[in-house]
Design a protein around this nucleic acid. Structure first.
Length: 593
RNA sequence: GGUUCCGUAGCUCAGUGGAUAGAGCAACAGCCUUCUAAGCUGUGGGUCGCAGGUUCGAAUCCUGCCGGAAUCGCCA
């Protein structure tokens, strides 16, 4: 519900009655509580102070004025300092009729669209995607849709970290113990195969560590002395020196990983407009660091390493280039930021990255500023919370990492068994049923993760995540399917449900209508807050409210034709808002389930 | 230790200056000859971490304290 059009009238009324100028910001309008008569509430307390009159009297004076000057208003009531306004039936019916023919409903008009580059996913190529990546991907993708819904131009980019010591570890392990194994031989997705060798490296490395510790070496010494680690570091140097054989192996194994990632992305339903590879951008980062050294922004130590001194900003010194000349994470991110800016000249460079990297992005923005990049302020770290399991954080050592592919498989299987035990899809052909199970299982997973405030650490409870009742994705899908079913029975087109709207609204219908009309405002606010969770919560509330309405009223067997038309119109709008809202979340809704 | 974030019902979460703080799950009790029961209704369950402050009004803003997490790497 968005009745801000009444604000100028309030300002005018206040001026006429009290000869005072009201700043629109001091006007608080909100939806009237459900248990009190009225539609829209003006909070009068702050105004009463300016009017130098008791809140009740001020409210009544303003109420009288509004009633006289706005034909849409039917009556008002004053409760303490709250002025509760009630609109006429025709007004609400008009709003509903307008919404029905508004194909852009839920896409607020935007007179200052921005160009926004959103980076998300950002995987390393040494391991398959896991639960943490899933939250990242879902947030990044739905954030993109949310910004598009708000009229912004969005470019979705992925930054694949395809180079570095971690990849060398997988490569080295494969070279030593792989016997030429390929994904085809092994019957494994490529990302999983490469991940297997990363784990193998770690296993052998830890054996070396314990041997070295037994003979009395410290933790730091062990890192230096471990032959495996030395080999991996040597491999990284060879890679940066363009060694043919190393590059060849690197391309081969990365190609396996990309095949695997593509399959996972596709199944998850996310995509990208452009993919950056750090192997193609880190050199640019090095050049930026050198530039910084030349103009005094950074400095080089005797051992050849390059640092930024951020102590004046209350931070520490930050390494930008290792003593052996190889680049670190920050080097690469400087390069990719520059490249991204050159490519798009975007108003915002959004990085969907976990909050464990808050410091990193704080430093990144400062470094860019220090390099004199005027667009440094465009860097925006979209910092989201970690995903934890009931037993705590995921730990690869303890084998508690929840694999993305496995998880999607399980959700789908749960949807299948649930649907079978409920006897839901009788008579549906198997491929159609399979499509539905995918849709439902994925909805459960996506909604479960997106309904939580992005910045908060969230708990992933496997048992709860496969619950399809209550505040869940399948519940919302079900509501949509129910509405579609009604329209099939009625033989009415959901997009053009009625010719005309007349008659009266009861409390439930009126409440549902007000909720429906709030949709554009929710999308706008969610966009301002960068919060898909607001959309998720709205859609859930709407579905819940519809189900209450559905339980109480018959749509097709309504008391009169005009009532039937009205209820069809309400139902159609609920279905549309659900579909649009879920679309923003990257969740599909079925016509039956 | 510094910085940042978090603390709301048994559990998971909404609620970012307005009225009597809400959902879901779990527990218990009901509702399908009527548009899909993946639904609906009801019952019980709260010192909004604690203490001050600002305000007509605070879960919400400020300060301090307590508890938890992340981070401060020649890892990414």
């Amino acid at each position: 519900m968005n009745e801000t059009h009444i604000i100028p009238l309030i300002v005018r009324g206040f001026r006429e009655i009290y000869q005072g100028d009201l700043q629109p910001e001091t006007i608080t309008l909100q939806r009237t509580r459900r248990d009190v008569p009225g539609d829209l509430t003006l909070v009068v307390f702050p105004l009463a102070k300016m009017a130098q009159q008791a809140p009740e009297a001020t409210a009544r004076a303003l109420g009288d004025f509004l009633l006289q000057n706005n034909k849409a208003l039917a009556e008002y009531e004053v409760v303490k300092g709250f002025l509760n306004l009630t609109f006429k039936e025709e007004y609400w019916l008009g709003r509903l009729a307008d919404a029905l023919i508004d194909t852009g409903f839920g896409h607020p008009s935007n007179d200052s669209p921005r160009r926004i580059v959103i980076e998300y996913s950002s995987p390393n190529t040494n391991k398959p995607l896991h639960l943490g990546h899933i939250r990242n991907n879902l947030l990044g993708f739905s954030l993109s849709r949310l910004m598009q819904a708000n009229g912004h131009e969005v470019i979705k980019v992925n930054l694949v970290n395809d180079r570095g010591i971690h990849i060398c570890k997988s490569m080295l392990a494969w070279k030593k113990w792989g016997n030429g194994e390929t994904p085809v031989h092994a019957g494994l997705k490529g990302d999983h195969l490469v991940g297997k060798y990363y784990v193998l490296f770690d296993l052998h490395f830890r054996q070396e560590v314990s041997r070295l510790k037994e003979i009395g070496h410290s933790d730091e010494e062990v890192q230096q002395l471990s032959p495996l680690m030395q080999e991996a570091r040597e491999m990284l140097r060879q890679w940066e020196n363009g060694d043919e054989e190393v590059k060849q192996l690197w391309s081969t194994m990365n190609a396996w990983v990309y095949d695997g990632f593509d399959a996972t992305y596709q199944r998850l339903g996310v995509d990208f407009d452009k993919i950056y590879y750090e192997s193609e951008t880190y050199q640019l980062g090095k050049r930026l660091v050198e530039e910084g050294v030349r103009n005094g922004a950074f400095y080089r130590r005797d051992d050849g390493s390059v640092w930024a001194d951020l102590t004046a900003d209350g931070l520490d010194e930050k390494l930008l280039l290792r003593s052996d000349g190889t680049s670190v994470y920050m080097t690469q991110d400087l390069g990719t930021a520059q490249l991204r800016h050159d490519d798009y000249q975007a108003d915002e460079l959004v990085y969907v990255v976990g909050n464990e990297q808050n410091y990193h992005f704080d430093v990144l923005a400062r470094l860019l500023a220090r390099l004199g990049r005027p667009w440094a302020g465009a860097v925006h770290h979209y910092s989201y919370g970690m995903v934890e399991l009931p037993q705590g954080r995921m730990k690869s050592r303890e084998g508690t990492v929840v694999d993305a592919d496995d998880l999607m498989e399980e959700m789908e299987a749960t949807a299948r068994s649930m649907s079978e035990s409920l006897g839901k899809l009788e008579g549906m052909d198997t491929s159609e049923a399979a499509r539905l199970h995918r849709m439902i299982g994925l909805a459960a997973l996506k909604y479960y993760m997106l309904k939580v405030d992005p910045k908060k650490t969230m708990l992933f409870n496997p048992e709860e995540s496969v619950d399809f009742n209550g505040n869940t994705g399948p519940f919302i899908q079900y509501t949509h399917a129910r509405i579609c079913s009604v329209f099939r029975k009625a033989g009415v087109d959901l997009e053009h449900p009625v010719e005309a709207l007349t008659g009266n609204l009861d409390t439930r219908e009126r409440g549902l209508l007000k909720s429906l009309l709030a949709f554009p405002e929710v999308i706008r606010e969610a966009g301002q807050m960068y919060s898909p969770a607001l959309v998720a919560n709205y859609v859930y509330e709407l579905a819940r409210e519809f189900n209450q309405f559905y339980q109480e009223h018959s749509i097709l067997q309504a008391e009169s034709e005009e009532k039937k038309a009205l209820r069809l119109a309400l139902s159609a709008m609920v279905a549309r808002n659900i579909r649009e809202g879920m679309f923003i979340l990257g969740i599909e809704v079925p016509d039956r389930m």
